[in-house]
């Protein structure tokens, strides 16, 4: 195979009900539910993006619970993440404040090389908009974040933002992970999968 394959851990953060799970559902399955139950826990999904140069990037997506009571668990999911999508709802200005908190937390506590994308969801409801594009864009620029507006309902901008993230990830030189976790997640993060397949023999089942 001449194409390169990479695998990255991506975490979705943001206030409850901004549409994190819907965004993932649209991205992974190209589906949309009008009524989704609130996520209690963290869902794990994968989706692969193929770039123009035929490089494929496989995202290991952790969709986290937005509810405040589970906030203390978020670090478990964003540790070792290569990229984070912080989602707010353009019809709820308070959700952008929450997003700012998440960004701040990520900047302080996550891997320093983490790629953060700020994502204004529910773009289809722009009639009820409370967060202007300018405001969000300005904030994103100040903090050096990627930014886009999306609609999980219509699909607008969804694939684009994930593709944009894929392009921004360090595809040439896989960063060595700091605070490496055990198991495959760490081993896989940002690793060329072609190489990994040859090394699999060493990964014998542990008998402990």
């Amino acid at each position: 195979m001449s194409t390169k394959q990479f695998q990255f851990k991506l975490v979705l953060l943001g206030e409850s009900a901004v549409g994190k799970s819907s965004l993932v559902l649209r991205f992974v399955k190209d589906q949309f539910d009008d009524y989704r139950e609130s996520t209690i826990g963290a869902a794990f999904l994968t989706q692969t993006v193929t770039l123009e140069d035929q490089t494929t990037v496989k995202f290991e997506i952790w969709d986290t619970a937005g509810q405040e009571r589970y906030k203390s668990l978020a670090p478990m999911y964003y540790r070792n993440a290569n990229c984070a999508v912080v989602v707010y709802d353009i019809t709820q200005s308070a959700s952008l404040d929450k997003a700012r908190n998440w960004v701040r937390e990520l900047q302080r506590q996550a891997d320093p090389s983490i790629v953060i994308a700020l994502c204004g969801n529910k773009a289809d409801l722009s009639a009820r908009r409370q967060v202007s594009e300018e405001e969000a864009k300005k904030y994103a620029d100040e903090e050096g974040l990627m930014w886009a507006e999306t609609s999980a309902k219509t699909g607008e901008g969804v694939t684009e933002i994930f593709t944009a993230i894929a392009k921004k990830l360090p595809l040439t030189a896989p960063a060595s992970r700091s605070g490496a976790a055990r198991g495959t997640t760490a081993a896989r993060s940002g690793v060329d999968l072609n190489k990994q397949s040859t090394a699999q023999g060493q990964n014998e089942p542990c008998n402990c």
């Binding site: 963290a42 668990l73 976790a181 055990r182 198991g183 495959t184 089942p205 542990c206 402990c208």
Partner: peptide, 16 residues
């Protein structure tokens, strides 16, 4: 105790 080491967000060797 016979499963792979894992924790929240780090699922370990799920396949095994």
């Amino acid at each position: 105790t016979r499963l792979s080491p894992a924790s929240a967000g780090t699922p370990g060797e799920d396949g095994k």
